[in-house]
Design a protein around this nucleic acid. Structure first.
Lengths: 144, 144
DNA sequence: TAGTTAAGTGGGAAAAAGTGGGAAACCTAT
DNA sequence: ATAGGTTTCCCACTTTTTCCCACTTAACTA
């Protein structure tokens, strides 16, 4: 279970240390892909295979299937974790998530999210303000 | 599994480097053909056989099946990957996909797609704007 | 508290990837 | 046959990536 929040540095060579607490669980090879709300998702290869196995079943004939495949696969990159626990963030993903030098790494169950630090702070602030509202909605649907 | 997005240069001699990450999987001989949404598809010869067997398996009785077969099969070109990983894009395909100097190469599972860079940027923007649709699909396949 | 280990960061050198261009080989049409 | 054009093969340059090592700070330990 990946949990916790860390701030690390994305250096000029686009290298990013994964928090040491995440390394064991995430493994030596990971897949980085576009997430939601402008962040990146990092999956272990095992987790990633679960995702792709569902994609390959979809047929080429349908336009929105092609759209979705291009989005999921075109925006993903498989990359090795180097011997001291760093990954390389491709340019187009760095650009997509608007990453600067300081980035936030968030453990979310079975994936890691990578955020522009400020975007994460903002997002967190907004969600915290709405916490009571969210709790009520979740309560309504019986989630908590 | 071919994944990721790269921008390369199509030079004056219509040579195009395949991203090194794709070379092992795609092999030394590939098939280029007209794709959908105005891009080109590149398959390994092995994958191409699978595609053709699927297409020829469709009933020829239907006019739109014949049309699609002519489209995919009629425009297909087999070409070697040169010793340093480049392919030659035939003129009529370059013209079809409106390729200029900068082209985007997208790994989509078992094929590489070649796009005019700007067309790809536009297309991507349109798909990404539909975040709600994407989120729903991501949920369906268990990615989030 | 000093010494030791681990984590995160940074940088240089070697290797690989991507790009470009010249010349030989090959057509093709006059 | 040869001039003009294209294709192929090879070499070379530039940029990017990879690999390795080292420094700094923080945590841990005897």
């Amino acid at each position: 279970m990946l949990i916790g929040e860390y701030t690390h540095t994305l250096d000029e060579k686009r290298r990013l240390s994964l928090p040491s607490k995440f390394r064991k669980e995430i493994g030596k090879k990971v897949v980085i892909t576009k997430g939601l709300e402008g962040c990146l998702f990092v999956y272990s290869t095992k987790q990633w295979e679960k995702v792709t196995s569902k994609l390959t079943g979809l047929s080429l004939g349908q336009a929105n299937t092609r759209d979705f495949n291009r989005y999921m696969l075109g925006s993903a990159v498989e990359t090795d974790v180097d011997p001291i626990g760093r990954i390389l963030v491709p340019d187009f993903l760095k650009y997509f998530a608007n990453l600067q030098s300081k980035v936030s790494l968030i453990g979310v169950h079975d994936r890691i999210e990578i955020w522009n630090e400020k975007a994460w702070t903002n997002y967190k602030g907004r969600v915290e303000k709405q916490a009571d509202v969210l709790a009520e909605k979740l309560g309504e649907i019986g989630a908590i």
